[in-house]
Simulated scan of single mutants.
Amino acid sequence: MTARARVGTSGWSYDHWRGVLYEPGTRDRLARYTAEFDTVELNASFYRWPRPERFAAWRDRLPDGFEMSVKAPRGVTHARHFVLTPEWRERIAAGLDALGLRRGPLLAQLPPGDVRDDARLAAFLADLPLGARPVVELRHPSWVAEEVFATLAAHGAAYCVMSGAGLPCELRATADFVYVRLHGPTDALYQGSYDDAAITWWAARIREWLAQGRDVYAYFNNDIGGHAVQNARSLRDALG
């Protein structure tokens, strides 16, 4: 099967996207989003993990071929720092299962102050539900290490390639897919717009991963001012 690149945004419902993606009278923002993009990263799940019925409702509204990546709850990644209790494992599994064929990878993001802990990372990955297709966003620079990449590869987990916000940008592929989060071209989260040269550069990197037979998920998180939508359109067009 030919590798595929999916380009979207982190979240889909922002008031300041009026005039960029939505018209003033747009009532169904998800429908408008899915009319243009084939993937989205669900961020609301980080703050409050939805019930399975909510995931099922999204599944039924998403078109064929669309994939929703899901951000793991902060109750696991921030409050417990990658310690996955049996209760949380069951809740995560139920939600992902309810998405069915619309399910994309599961993103687990550690706080920027959490330093490298190989044993905790390995235990977390081993405890995840089967088929979770995990992605780990490791923001502290101490995680950039060959042993960490080997642990991820051993569990079929993707290293999250990060861009912007002063985060380490390490172009590493540790799974059969690559996951990229583009937080903006400046040192501030959610702000700024990538210029044409940057879009062209990222398109070239994505083509390299595709040539290796890896699917690619790329999400723009620079939502302020609607830049995420505009940059996602540009990257999608650059990839043809």
Rank of each mutant, 00 (worst) to 15 (best):
T9M: 07
S10N: 05
S10K: 01
W12I: 14
Y14N: 02
W17E: 03
Y22S: 01
T26N: 03
T26A: 04
R29V: 07
R29M: 08
R32D: 14
Y33D: 01
E36F: 04
D38I: 03
T39M: 10
E41Y: 00
N43S: 08
N43C: 08
A44G: 15
A44R: 15
R48Y: 13
P52D: 03
R54N: 12
F55T: 05
F55R: 02
W58P: 05
W58G: 05
R59K: 12
G65A: 09
F66D: 06
E67G: 02
M68I: 03
S69M: 04
G75N: 08
V76E: 03
T77Q: 04
F82C: 03
V83H: 15
P86C: 01
R89K: 13
E90W: 06
A94C: 10
L96C: 13
D97E: 15
A98N: 13
G100L: 14
L101N: 12
R103S: 09
G104K: 02
G104D: 12
G104L: 05
L110P: 04
G113A: 06
V115N: 08
A122F: 09
L125M: 10
D127L: 14
L130P: 14
L130Y: 12
R139M: 05
V144L: 12
E147T: 02
A157P: 06
M162L: 15
P168H: 07
C169S: 14
E170Y: 11
V180L: 15
R181Y: 09
G184I: 01
D187R: 13
A188L: 12
Y190F: 11
A198P: 05
A198D: 15
W201S: 10
W202V: 09
R205G: 04
E208C: 07
E208S: 10
W209E: 10
V216F: 13
V216A: 12
Y217E: 08
Y219C: 00
A228R: 01
A232R: 02
